[in-house]
């Protein structure tokens, strides 16, 4: 591994909560690690497992999906439906040998700027420990 390697992490953030949480972290000048690239989604239930796989294949080292806390989804149940997809996909990827920690999930509300930065730091730390993703990545 190169000494100055930095992981690339793709974060899918729900527009109504985690994206606003990230915004709050920013406006509150809370520091968090700069390794994430954010894609805003309308709801964590919008995540198709294909998004996560495509990201891993295309060169990111990890993926974070973050949505509203249970009970707080703007569309009432999007995060509940998403939770089942997340649980099964996560287990399946680990079964296949993709390291635990490559794909992570969190609930972060619009008021939780502090939690957002903490989550991002934790995920970044985990993925730094795992090193660059080699499996599955498409060599170009």
């Amino acid at each position: 591994m190169e000494k100055d390697w930095q992981p690339k992490i793709l974060a899918f953030l729900c527009n109504w909560c985690s994206y606003a949480g990230a915004d709050l972290a920013g406006t509150s000048r809370v520091q968090y690690s700069p390794n994430i690239r954010v894609i805003r989604v309308p709801c964590s239930g919008r995540i198709n497992p294909l998004f996560i796989l495509k990201a891993l294949q295309s060169g990111v080292d990890g993926v974070l999906v973050s949505g509203c806390h249970p009970g707080d989804c703007h569309y009432l149940s999007g995060n509940y439906a998403g939770r089942r997809k997340s649980a099964t996909l996560k287990r399946f990827l680990e079964f296949l040998g993709i390291e635990q920690g490559r794909v992570q999930f969190s609930w972060v509300s619009a008021a939780e700027g502090g939690k957002f930065s903490q989550v991002v730091d934790e995920v970044t730390r985990d993925i730094k420990r795992l090193g660059p993703l080699k499996k599955f990545k498409k060599s170009s």
Binding site: Y80, R84, K85, S86, A87, T88, Q104, S106
Partner: peptide, 16 residues
């Protein structure tokens, strides 16, 4: 079918 429904009490220990 399990992925077209949910239970508010579903397991979520894996979510931060």
């Amino acid at each position: 079918p399990p992925l077209s429904t949910f239970d508010p009490e579903d397991q979520q220990g894996f979510i931060k």
